[in-house]
Design a protein around this nucleic acid. Structure first.
Lengths: 253, 253
DNA sequence: TAGTGGTCTAGACCACAGC
DNA sequence: CTGTGGTCTAGACCACTAT
């Protein structure tokens, strides 16, 4: 039950006990936990105290609560590793864009929905692309799904001068994706940079990606460099932090 | 103060109002918020409701609560970018290990505390280091501080065969850090790989890093490769996700 | 000592899911 | 309809900080 004299708050003891039962397999992935009212009996605690315990487990991503249904043990996320060589020309030559290449490697079926629009560069975009604020940019707004679930949001922006007359302004960019079209148009990609951070999802992102609000997102900004430090594209990506790992490799000098 | 008929929970309305006041500057960084008892008066809500609102702001990293003192507005996080060239031999030649090199670049004063111990490789460690389970490994357990605040936890493990008789088994590894000692001992580092993910902190990590429990951590596993795909070191690092961004660059094939 | 946040209780009513 | 989680109340006592 709960040791009232231990100095450890009751809700933490309850959380620890439930956590242990989950990892020991007493509650299997997908199982429903006892209802909050039942747990008040089990642990001889009030309902807010039991709820505080469940809040801890939710923040850890171990369980999800579904209003009107119950609290369920989340299946452990299948980690999908995204390696930097997903951007290789070899992969493009096999007709795949970056995400479809990942899907191929990860063994899941992928689909994307794309919207193309045009906008004027704001300060951040202008700075990253090395252009003037207000310059027209082509925006490709993509939602990636794996086995039907939304796993990634990506917004890429290119100076419109680079995309005019190419399939980059179409929903379907054709074999090899936008990078292949860029290089066909004579804009060779010399280097990539990725800036990786993490943040909590906005409520809209949480519902779109069907995530509990407590899960954190991996935020990646990729910059594609051309010759002479020109910037060809920036791509802002958001991934479910529990489902993805990123792998980077480089030679030691 | 709180619109009871809007359908929006009271604690979210209160959180939104306080958030707005913070971003508008009514409460400046470092300022103390009104006490929970005062806020119950202001918003005509019970104390648990007010506390739920504050919990939201804590989860967002906007405020911190200090027991017995009050709730304070957190200074906005200064993003520190860690670039892959932090591991260059050039930086080591300037007498700095990776973290102190970062500190130098970031303009903050850094300190570390180190504990060295020895243990037998568990399954994960053995797999990553390419050794047998149970092989003795040297463990360097480090806590990094910047301007006094804990910003990073790092645990690196090396096969003990590589470290015997070197300063890697000492608390102070000497100029250039453990990587410099490895190379002096003839173990040239050929490549690095980093696996980047994110997760919630355990309660212990949260208190050690003085973070709200709901903030997410960047989790990095670095592998240092020697010749012929041998593994020289694995380094498990945890960083405050709000304060750090990682930068990786590579040529486009 | 007074004021602060941390924890906890024993209820209440609501919204949602499923039979 | 019943059972679930979501929200909320009006208190209470404790632990910590500062004076």
């Amino acid at each position: 039950m709960v040791d009232r004299r231990s100095g450890v708050p009751a809700f933490r003891q309850i959380a620890a006990d439930l956590r242990q039962k989950i990892s020991a397999g007493s509650f299997a992935p997908g199982d429903q936990l006892p209802s909050e009212r039942e747990l008040t009996e089990t642990y001889q605690a009030s309902r807010p105290t039991v709820r505080d315990a469940i809040k801890v487990l939710r923040a850890e991503g171990l369980v999800t609560a579904e209003h009107g249904r119950g609290v369920f043990v989340r299946p452990p996320a299948k980690i999908q590793r995204l390696a930097r060589n997903r951007l290789s020309r070899a992969a493009r030559a096999q007709n795949r864009g970056a995400f479809l290449g990942d899907a191929h490697a990860g063994g899941f079926t992928a689909s994307t929905s794309v919207k193309v629009r045009f906008e004027e560069a704001d300060e951040r975009v202008a700075d990253l692309l090395g252009i003037e604020v207000g310059t027209e940019v082509t925006v490709r707004d993509r939602v990636m799904r794996a086995d039907g679930l939304v796993v990634m949001l990506a917004v890429s922006r290119l100076p419109r001068d680079l995309t005019r007359g190419t399939a980059i302004e179409e929903v379907n960019t054709g074999p090899g994706g936008a990078y292949a079209r860029l290089e066909e148009a004579g804009h060779t990609i010399e280097d990539f940079a990725e800036i990786v951070g993490t943040r909590a999802p906005t409520p809209e992102e949480a519902s779109l990606m069907q995530l509990p609000e407590s899960v954190s997102l991996l935020k990646i900004t990729r910059i594609a460099f051309g010759v002479n430090d020109t910037r060809l594209e920036i791509n802002d990506m958001l991934l479910d932090g529990e489902r993805f790992e990123l792998v980077y490799t480089w030679p030691a000098d």
